Simulated assay, not measured.
Amino acid sequence: MKTFALIGAAGYIAPRHMRAIKAVGGDLAVALDPSDSVGIIDSHFPDAHFFVEFERFDRHIDKLRRAGRGIDFVSVCSPNYLHDAHCRFGMRANADVICEKPLVLNPWNIDGLSDIEQETGRRISTILQLRLHPALQALKARIDATDRTDHEVVLTYVTSRGKWYNSSWKGDTGKAGGVATNIGIHFFDMLTWLFGPVTKQTLYLRDRDRAAGTLQCGKAEVRWFLSVDRADLPAELKAGQTTFRSVAVDGEEVEFSEGFTDLHTRSYEEILAGRGFGIDLVRPSINIASAIRDMTVVTLDKSAHPFALRR
């Protein structure tokens, strides 16, 4: 049985990690969060130790290590800007790390984590669950089977958030990286995985709640639009539907709405089997998202995403 520590136990994504740890036969030994609203732990690991102070959490893990019962994995679900530090902590605690995306906010931080991997002999794996989605794996197989390099892709993701969003760390660009990082990083990874490295990117829109631009990948021209504003939802959506996710390749919709519920568990299974997604794989998406924060916004033209043009 592998033992786990979880940093960020009160966050939105933490329950998926708890379920995954349970599903792979692991044991959550200890968890940390400055918020004590973590009753969800009882549904999975009621005997887990819990701390609201990092210092006491650190001490507890060190005591376990010295007693010969060290942690095998540290799962990092903390706010984006803390991932780097918490990954460093995990490796220095002689554990492998499973980190939610984005691994880091800036590409130069990847090099530092790589150095610590070499120093400690530990490994970081990132949750890139879209690479494990059966529909997207089938799409990749079709793309790889041809020599075509002129695919046209339209990516649209609108996931409405309430007023709380911008009052939390997620609305702080310095902590979350901006909307393109916070909700778009896994899509940027998906696009580069499917179509190859980015050779050019353009930014048409960037504000607190939305961003839009284009990517020229090795095999595709991509128009993308990301938003957390419900006003950007298509009018034709069913009443009460708060999220719109669409990827169209050469005018054909790629249906991958189903099959998301167990992808964190699949990710953990792959990691424990030695097939996790290492830190070098995240570099392309981190480069894209980081560049968006500093790029000059250009005037809208016909190459922009239709949702950007309608504003």
Rank of each mutant, 00 (worst) to 15 (best):
G177M: 03
G178Y: 10
V179E: 02
V179F: 15
V179G: 01
V179C: 05
A180Y: 06
T181P: 04
N182Y: 12
N182C: 03
N182W: 04
N182D: 05
I183Q: 08
I183D: 01
G184S: 07
G184M: 15
I185F: 06
H186D: 15
F187C: 03
F187M: 13
F188Q: 03
M190E: 08
M190W: 03
M190T: 13
M190H: 01
M190A: 10
L191R: 01
T192C: 04
T192W: 06
T192H: 10
L194Y: 12
L194D: 08
L194K: 14
L194W: 05
G196E: 01
P197I: 01
P197Q: 07
K200C: 07
Q201T: 12
T202G: 07
L203A: 08
L203F: 09
L203N: 11
L203C: 05
Y204I: 07
R206Y: 14
D207L: 06
D207Y: 09
D209N: 14
R210Y: 03
A211C: 14
A211N: 07
A211G: 05
A212K: 06
A212F: 00
A212M: 02
G213V: 04
T214V: 01
T214K: 02
T214S: 11
T214G: 00
L215N: 03
C217G: 10
K219L: 09
A220L: 00
E221P: 02
R223N: 07
R223S: 13
R223D: 02
R223H: 01
F225K: 01
F225A: 04
F225L: 06
L226G: 05
S227I: 05
R230G: 15
R230K: 15
R230E: 10
A231R: 15
A231H: 14
D232Q: 12
D232P: 08
P234L: 13
A235Q: 03
A235P: 00
E236L: 06
E236F: 14
L237E: 02
L237G: 10
L237K: 06
K238M: 07
K238E: 15
A239G: 12
A239H: 11
A239D: 15
G240V: 11
Q241R: 14
T242H: 14
T242R: 15
F244R: 04
R245E: 13
R245K: 10
S246D: 08
V247L: 15
V249H: 09
V249Q: 08
D250H: 11
D250S: 09
G251A: 13
G251R: 09
G251I: 12
E253V: 09
E253Y: 14
V254A: 10
E255F: 05
S257I: 04
G259S: 03
F260Q: 14
T261K: 12
D262L: 14
D262I: 00
H264V: 14
R266H: 01
R266L: 13
R266A: 15
R266S: 08
Y268V: 00
Y268C: 08
Y268L: 13
E269K: 06
I271R: 04
I271K: 02
L272D: 08
A273W: 06
A273C: 07
G274T: 08
R275T: 06
G276Y: 08
G276R: 03
G276P: 12
